[in-house]
Design a protein around this nucleic acid. Structure first.
Lengths: 153, 153
DNA sequence: CTTGACCTTAGATTAAACTCTAAGGTTTAT
DNA sequence: ATAAACCTTAGAGTTTAATCTAAGGTCAAG
């Protein structure tokens, strides 16, 4: 069991952030102490890890709420529904993955091309390395309306 | 050659956004018409694609400016310097990549486990699918100070 | 028994990344 | 010739995701 300060320290975020996530339905402590202190268990910690990871790879809190809603609602939703949601997110993830692999490849080739020495880097260019790329996954994002205020106040 | 409206339409962004990127040193049109209209060529378009991709995978404009600076400065920098910058970005990209692969695997296993039928999705959970994960790449980000106002006014 | 960690509500502030408005002007397409 | 697209500067407004402050309290460890 972690208290808010402990959990926030663990992930190097602010206690405020945890309260913010709670307010917005992303993460609630599984229990409270007699005195009302938030108590987070290992599952809560995992959930937080999930949130932070998803954030780190470019998902908005909205997107993350979508993903987590699968967890919350799982017994109230038909498998078909869940599968749909998951598959649509999977598409997004795979698009990002493709982008990143492209990136990584370019950076690697750049790093390898680069002599690493003290000479001018005239022939080093990410854009050169990236030059032949066709996919453009950069489209309109679905906007879900995170409802910054009307959540459950 | 694209005019601002054309290029922005091409990537489904606002003309304002292109002016914004220009003001912040991310993308300047390679030329102007006699009448002062911005004219973007194919290279500019590629650069924009790069920016939007990088954004889509969770890099900040700051991070992107770093990456692009390699391009801009390449003849003024020693190869060693460039290599350092590239390698550090590569680390970030690979960390993100690892996260995403984890994600994708979880979503896939979730999608597969899911019967996809009309029954309750009791046993579908992203968090369950993700449950055994150790890495925590979620650390303090380097903050570069994009200097929202003091760029070259 | 006091300091530091926590609680609450409520609102202010910050930062990034846009997005829009205004005001006044030029250019290009029909 | 007129409307739509562009130009400028300059600043206001928006959204997301925090972060901070205040005010007034409770709780726990040394």
């Amino acid at each position: 069991m972690y208290r808010i300060g402990e959990l926030s320290a663990l992930y190097d975020i602010k206690a405020d952030t945890l309260r913010f996530y709670e307010k917005h339905g992303l993460l609630s402590p599984s229990s409270r102490s007699d005195s009302g202190y938030r108590l987070y268990n290992q599952d809560d910690s995992e959930r937080l890890k999930f949130i932070l990871r998803a954030k780190a790879v470019g998902f908005s809190l909205n997107d993350i709420a979508d993903l987590l809603s699968i967890e919350v609602d799982k017994s109230n939703r038909a498998c078909a529904e869940v599968k749909g949601l998951v598959d649509s997110k999977l598409e997004q993830v795979e698009a990002k993955l493709a982008e990143l692999q492209h990136f990584a490849a370019s950076l690697k080739s750049l790093s390898n091309t680069c002599c690493g020495g003290p000479d001018s880097a005239e022939h080093c260019s990410i854009l050169e390395a990236l030059e032949s790329s066709d996919q453009h996954i950069i489209a309109k994002k679905e906007q879900h309306h995170f409802s910054h205020s009307g959540h459950k106040d």
